[in-house]
């Protein structure tokens, strides 16, 4: 056989063999047999110098080309075999190394969501004192002394005669005095009721107050805003049901129910088979409250609402005991 043909045949066979190699040792013996000093290729290359000049040049060129090609194949295969080897040592099912982190309280988490929703609608996020005066907690909100409405909220009194605010509504009047009209704000905060605690009531809890004052604010506006933010919070379309409710600082006053999010309104034990969950009190701001806030009720009108933040969080995460919020138990808090 022609020497060139033989070299080409060696190359073809070697390439065929290398396809089947999947271990480093096989690769080594292949290298030895194909490229080693005693290999047929080496032998032929040594013989090239004895060929006539014409043939020598062609055979030498081909032989070097083949040798280089085979060496490259070997090197490439070697590195891929090594990588495969390395990968075998990694157990990819092993748990990842998570960085240590703490946890925000669910009240902070959901409060932030609400703040962001309302901030995007141009609402101020307002704060106020937790230890309040009777004036701001009651009188300014159209709840005079000895009015039966004071009974609706059992109150903690300090020895100095102040009260732990029973709702976030006092912020309404403070904010009206601070900013004037028009005004739109929410005020999340802690509130206090002097009553026994159980799985669904605590004597310290959180409310979110909402207030919007402008020209011609209507009941239709209130319902639209309520639907909007509730749908965002629960990331599903919720229906809102409005019915009469009495709160002295609004007129008219409503209770706003929302579609029971546990049964989607079909009726379950949580909603007493009504399909509705009582969610918040609301209404149009009472003219006397606007006056207390220094705003002319002839020129401006507004809506206000207030709801329990803890209850919303409990609905959102299906938490069954409100007292967990103030338990300080890391096993609970770690879940958020």
């Amino acid at each position: 056989m022609d020497i060139v043909e033989e070299i080409k045949e060696i190359a073809r066979r070697a390439k065929e063999q290398v396809e089947k190699i999947n271990s480093a040792s096989d690769l080594l013996s292949w290298e030895k047999s194909v490229l080693g000093r005693k290999s047929r290729l080496s032998q032929l290359m040594r013989n090239i110098k004895d060929l006539p000049l014409e043939q020598r040049r062609e055979a030498g060129h081909i032989a070097n080309q083949v040798k280089q090609e085979l060496q490259e194949i070997a090197a490439k295969l070697k590195s891929s075999l090594q990588q495969a080897e390395k990968q075998k040592q990694v157990d990819v099912t092993w748990p990842g190394e998570k960085p240590q982190r703490g946890h925000l309280h669910p009240v902070s988490l959901v409060q932030r969501e609400l703040e962001d929703i309302f901030a995007s609608l141009g609402f101020i996020i307002e704060d106020g004192p937790e230890l309040e005066s009777e004036y701001y907690n009651f009188d300014a909100l159209n709840i005079p002394a000895y009015h039966p409405a004071r009974d609706m909220q059992d109150t903690f009194f300090t020895v100095g005669g102040d009260v732990l605010r029973t709702h976030t509504s006092p912020i309404q009047v403070r904010a009206m005095q601070k900013y004037g009209a028009p005004l739109r704000l929410i005020a999340p905060g802690r509130v206090f009721r002097y009553e026994a605690s159980d799985a669904s009531h605590d004597f310290v809890f959180h409310q979110v107050e909402g207030l919007m004052i402008d020209k011609d604010i209507s009941i239709a506006n209130l319902i639209a805003i309520a639907k909007e933010f509730l749908s965002r919070i629960f990331t599903q379309d919720v229906e809102v049901r409005v019915r009469p409710g009495f709160f002295p600082f609004v007129e008219p006053g409503f209770e706003m129910d929302l579609t029971c999010i546990l049964c989607q309104g079909k009726g379950c034990s949580a909603c007493k088979r009504t399909g509705w969950m009582e969610f918040m009190g609301a209404g149009l701001v009472h003219p006397r409250v606007l006056e207390a806030g220094g705003i002319d009720p002839q020129e401006f009108s507004g809506f206000a609402f207030g709801f329990g933040l803890d209850r919303l969080i409990m609905l959102k995460y299906r938490i069954d005991d409100i007292r967990l919020f103030h338990s300080g138990d890391v096993r609970f808090l770690q879940q958020f």
Partner: peptide
Amino acid sequence: YGNIRPSLPIV
């Protein structure tokens, strides 16, 4: 109240 159509305020 169910007969009132919701409408977002224009301000």
